[in-house]
Design a protein around this nucleic acid. Sequence first.
RNA 1: GCACUCGUAGCUCAGCUGGAUAGAGCACCCGCCUUCUAAGCGGGCGGUCUCAGGUUCGAAUCCUGACGGGUGUACCA
Length: 565
Amino acid sequence: MKLKEEVNTLIKKAFANAGIEAEPITVTDATKPEFGDYQFNGAMALAKQLKQNPRQIAQTILDNLETGGMIQKAEIAGPGFINLWLNPEWIAASCQNAEENERLGIGTRSNPIKAVVDYSGPNMAKQMHVGHLRSTIIGDTLANLLEFLGDDVIRQNHIGDWGTQFGMLIAYLEEMGEEGNGSLKDLEQFYKDAKSRFDADESFANKAREYVVKIQSGDAHCLTLWKKFIDISLGHCEEVYEKLDVNLSRDDVRAESFYNETLAKVVEDLDKAGMLQESDGAQCVFLEGDEVPVIVRKSDGGYLYATTDLAALYYRANVLGAKRISYVVDARQSGHFKQVFRVAKEAGFVPEDVKLEHVAFGTMMDKNGKPFKTRDGGTVKLIDLLDEAVVRAKAAITSKENYSEEELEKIARIVGIGAVKYADLAINRESNYIFDWDKMLSFEGNTSLYMQYAYARIQSIFRKYGKDVEGEIVIGDELEHKLAVMLLRFEDVLNKAAEDAAPNQITTYLYELVTLFMRFYERNPILKEGVDEQTRISRLMLADLTARTIKQGLAILGIQVVDRL
RNA sequence: GCACUCGUAGCUCAGCUGGAUAGAGCACCCGCCUUCUAAGCGGGCGGUCUCAGGUUCGAAUCCUGACGGGUGUACCA
């Protein structure tokens, strides 16, 4: 339910009834329990405009407020705040409705759009490393989120499969023959071996250069080798996606090479639009106010990634028909995207009404605040990091319960991978973040384990209860009131998170929800003796709604839950 | 040099479409298990929100400047 919107509607009506012309500012969540559930702070702002005392304006708004069963109490406080308390019966009915609804009462957009989310984007010449983690999971979350809200989401994995390095790699692959398949298991090593071969042997180097040209001109033999190489490399990525539980498949791949044929046209169209200038032999677009131009064709005739990105933008806006195109890419490329977006709009490659956004994120750091590396300074392979997460998770949970080996493996995987993802998603994506195993796999604070633990506890209650729950939700005390309102806020949070492309808004919400639930759980017994049936049923239903909200929230983050922990 | 970005408790971070006494977790101290999972809950300690101005009835939040960290800055992606 769009709770805030419903409250806002009442305020808007009050404005209309009172004959106040201004558009009211939106209500905000109450900052303190004693201020109710929502507060409206717009009276103060209007005071000057209307030349009236703010409290008087607040009173006028109150006099015209139709509470409609939704608001129980509205009070003026301080200089002119209006504090609003939701009616417990209305809350109960709304929760009841959510509980009986598959989607927890959350609607799908009335105006869904096509949304392209570009994320992950690994380089085929190398193994995926920790640097790819954030793009992959933030992008996946954004895609899941928009999809859940009803948009038509098109996932795009813009893999790097084109460029001079592939000449060297396929020449080496050819030389290795059958053996090559095996040595490709470690792409990092394969790349190094190929490179040293390239540096040591002039004839090999020449062949490598020749192969670059041959791939680009469509030579069948070289293309076969290249395809084989890409296929194996992509297989490595899929292994990572599988472990990470990310919704990316081969169908989502639109590689750099996919745009190869259209690059010349991009330059041509820019020329036609009169935006092209030659500078030092390169074809450039000079944007007003920018020091550096966007180079779309090198002096040697080659194209650059700005050209590919322009081609991709054209394809996404015009062929795919996207109205929102989100690039989940490292913050260091913000300058690049700012320029490319401008060029695309000015050249008319992308219609004015299409929203282009760079969903930028910071760098992953180690405990000392330095970029995250292995002990010898190399990059940390993503697959190794994920495997370690599972091993650590296993060690952390083994001591608690007697699981079967199979169960242990399954839970460790869900818990370990979930911890890695959650720790990343819980941070405001713009800032750099410190990677810390101990913190990540702790059960305390804002971690995935805390949510999963709460979920498991609720499942445990239902196992003990053993019957179907049917009845009515009744809001008993202040804690249940807070919990219920929090549950109803879920849709607002998802919508805001989608608008801002900010997964951490979801984690913050889940953490607050679970904290409230834990308090509720401590204080309001459910199955214990002395709880009357009506109260028990109501509390069970609130617990169930909480569990389902946790499950849904985590699912959007790409994290699973377990029934027992 | 120029541009972007960040600076909140000892540490890791929320809060930033301006609102009432700035919030969590960790760490440290004190309480709570014979009944729903104590991987939990309650309480305490801890802040001139980097600094200086400005706008405003009201600023951690907006603007300007300084200082400090990070990043980018024409033929790599």
